[in-house]
């Protein structure tokens, strides 16, 4: 029986002070519940998060209490 293993990409959140005009920016209220939960967990746990199951992609800036750019780990 064939099995498939899915390994989630790891992402990092990096706090940024400014945003480029061509950046994709999302407010935290635009994140779905699962993404929001992982986002906050990542902030508390060293800014690493698994992309699987979230709709975050590298390059996106998320507006929370600070601005965070999503980057590939």
């Amino acid at each position: 029986m064939a099995t498939t293993t899915s390994t989630g990409r790891s992402l990092t959140l990096r706090r940024v002070d400014s945003v480029a005009p061509d950046a994709t920016v999302r407010h935290i209220d635009q994140l779905d519940d699962r993404t929001l939960e992982r986002f906050y967990a990542a902030l508390e746990g060293g800014c690493q998060l698994t992309a699987t199951g979230t709709d975050l992609v590298p390059g996106t800036v998320v507006v929370a209490t600070d601005y965070y750019r999503v980057e590939a780990a």
């Binding site: 945003v19 005009p21 061509d22 950046a23 994709t24 920016v25 407010h27 635009q30 800036v61 507006v63």
Partner: peptide, 19 residues
């Protein structure tokens, strides 16, 4: 446009284009 981001523009933190 993104109505929940316009406050960030008013604060002077976010340029117009990403909104």
């Amino acid at each position: 446009y993104n109505r929940i981001l316009i406050k960030e523009h008013a604060k002077g933190k976010l340029p117009e284009a990403p909104i």
